[in-house]
C-alpha cells in the first residue's frame, strides 16, 4: 500500500475542498512568482537608470540639453529613471513660471517644489506596485494551506469512525494528503515573504535617493532664482 503513495495520487484522491485549496495555492504561488521576477527586473533597471542619470546630471551638462534628451527618450517610449521624471516635472514648471516673468522668486520655487512632490509620489507608487500582493500571499497562504489540512484530517477521522479496525494504515493516507496542502501553502509563502522584505527595502532605498536628488535640484534652482 505504501508503495502506491505518489504525490500525484494523493492530490487526485483528495476531497473537493482540499483540491480547491490546493488549486488556489498553486495559482497564488504562480502569480506571486510572476510578481517576484517582474519586480526584480523593474527595481534592478530603475537602479541602473538612476545611477546613469545622476552621473549625467552632475557631469556639468546644460540642464536644457538634459531636458531635451529626456523628451526624446520619452517620445521613443523608453523607460526613464524616476529621478529624471522628477527633474523633468520640476524643470518644466520652473521654466513656465520664469517665462511668465513672475516677480516673486519664492513663488517660483514653491511652484517648482510642488510639481516635484507630485512627480515623487507618482514614482513611489510605481516602486511599490505589486508589493502589497506579495505581502498578502506571504501572510495568508499558510493559513489557507492549514485550512485545507485541517479539513482533510477532519474528513479522514470521520471516515475512521466507520471502520471496524482503526489502524494507522487507514488514517495515514488521508493525513498525508491533507498535509500536502500545508506544504503548498508554505511553498507559496516563503518566497513571497523573502521577496517582499527585500523589494520593499530596495524600493525604500531608491525612493530615498529620489528625494535627495529632488532636494539637491531644488537648491540649484533656488540659487539660480536668487542670484538673478
Amino acid at each position: 500500500m505504501a508503495a502506491e503513495l505518489s504525490p500525484w495520487e494523493l492530490i487526485v484522491s483528495a476531497s473537493f475542498l482540499v483540491k480547491v485549496v490546493m488549486l488556489m495555492l498553486v495559482l497564488a504561488s504562480i502569480v506571486s512568482w510572476v510578481m517576484i521576477v517582474q519586480r526584480g527586473l523593474f527595481l534592478n533597471q530603475s537602479r541602473r537608470l538612476f545611477q546613469s542619470f545622476e552621473q549625467n546630471f552632475w557631469s556639468g551638462i546644460d540642464l536644457n540639453e538634459l531636458f531635451r534628451d529626456g523628451s526624446a527618450r520619452v517620445q521613443q517610449n523608453r523607460m526613464v529613471s524616476g529621478a529624471e521624471s522628477v527633474f523633468r516635472a520640476g524643470f518644466r514648471e520652473f521654466n513656465r513660471l520664469t517665462k511668465k516673468g513672475s516677480p516673486d522668486p519664492d513663488a517660483v520655487i514653491e511652484g517648482t517644489e510642488r510639481a516635484m512632490r507630485v512627480a515623487l509620489s507618482r514614482e513611489e507608487e510605481k516602486l511599490n506596485a505589486n508589493l502589497p500582493f506579495l505581502a498578502s500571499v506571504a501572510s495568508t497562504s499558510p493559513y489557507i494551506g492549514l485550512f485545507g489540512t485541517v479539513w482533510g484530517i477532519m474528513q479522514s477521522f470521520l471516515g475512521l469512525a466507520n471502520v471496524q479496525q482503526a489502524t494507522l494504515a487507514v488514517v495515514a493516507p488521508g493525513i498525508a494528503e491533507a498535509l500536502i496542502a500545508t506544504a503548498m501553502g508554505l511553498f507559496a509563502a516563503i518566497p513571497a515573504v523573502l521577496a517582499f522584505n527585500r523589494y520593499s527595502a530596495q524600493a525604500d532605498n531608491l525612493f530615498g535617493s529620489y528625494q535627495t536628488f529632488a532636494e539637491e535640484f531644488s537648491s540649484i534652482l533656488h540659487r539660480r532664482v536668487h542670484s538673478k
Binding site: I30, V31, W33, V34, M35, V37, Q38, L41, Q45, M79
Partner: peptide, 27 residues
C-alpha cells in the same frame, strides 16, 4: 524594456519554475 516584456518574461519564468518543481517532486 517595456512593461509588457518584463511581465511576459516574469510569467514564463514563474510557470517554468512551477513545472520544474512539480516534475521534480513527482519523480
Amino acid at each position: 524594456m517595456g512593461k509588457w516584456f518584463s511581465y511576459s518574461t516574469a510569467t514564463l519564468c514563474s510557470i517554468a519554475l512551477h513545472l520544474g518543481v512539480a516534475v521534480l517532486v513527482a519523480n
